Simulated assay, not measured.
Amino acid sequence: MSSWHEFIFMGKHGVYVWSSYLMSLIVLVGLFVGFRMMLKSLKKQVLAEVAAPDAQKQKARKLKVSQAD
């Protein structure tokens, strides 16, 4: 590579290459944030279940997974 300019533009293919990298990064960050939010929601549900008095506890209840809108 003789210059940064050639590296960035990659012989007229730079726009495609860098936009592909950007979209991949956006998808990965979105997945990371979504799973973190889901994990926090499940932790709240588990802590609420543990803190509930014995009379209010249900025997076998599935946890609800809330999805962000």
Rank of each mutant, 00 (worst) to 15 (best):
V33F: 14
G30C: 13
V15H: 08
A52P: 07
A68R: 13
K62Q: 08
V17Y: 12
V65F: 13
M10L: 10
G11D: 04
G11R: 03
V15K: 12
G34Q: 11
L25R: 06
R36A: 09
S2W: 05
F35W: 15
M1C: 05
K57Q: 08
L28K: 00
A51T: 03
V65Q: 01
E6Y: 04
Q58V: 07
M38D: 00
M1F: 13
F7Q: 02
A51W: 02
G14I: 06
K59W: 04
V29K: 13
Y16F: 15
P53E: 08
M10D: 07
K43M: 02
Q67T: 09
H13V: 01
V46K: 14
M23N: 03
E6A: 11
H13N: 11
G30I: 12
S24M: 07
F32A: 10
K62I: 09
G14K: 03
Y21W: 09
S24D: 04
S66G: 10
S20T: 10
H13D: 11
K64D: 06
F32L: 15
M37T: 10
R36P: 00
S20L: 05
S2A: 08
A48Q: 12
A52T: 05
G11K: 08
S3I: 02
Q45M: 03
M10E: 13
K43L: 01
D54R: 05
S41C: 08
Y16P: 00
L39C: 09
H5I: 15
A48R: 12
K12A: 02
R36L: 13
V65M: 06
V29L: 11
Q56S: 14
E49P: 01
K12V: 06
Q45Y: 01
D54T: 07
K40Q: 09
W4P: 08
A51D: 05
V33Q: 10
P53D: 08
A60T: 10
F32C: 13
S41T: 02
G34K: 14
L28G: 00
S20M: 04
G34M: 15
L22A: 14
E6H: 07
Q58P: 07
A51G: 04
D69G: 03
M10S: 10
A48E: 15
G34D: 13
L63W: 06
V17F: 13
H5C: 15
L63M: 11
F32G: 04
K57H: 02
R61M: 03
V46T: 05
Q56M: 06
M37S: 13
E49D: 15
V29N: 04
V27Y: 10
I8P: 00
S24G: 05
P53C: 08
D54M: 12
V46G: 00
M1P: 05
G11E: 04
A48L: 08
A52E: 11
S66Y: 14
F9M: 03
D54S: 14
V15W: 13
S3A: 07
L39W: 06
Q45W: 00
Q67H: 11
P53V: 09
V65D: 00
V50A: 04
H13E: 12
I26L: 15
A55C: 14
G34C: 12
S66P: 11
L47W: 06
S3F: 03
F35I: 10
M23P: 01
S20G: 05
K57S: 07
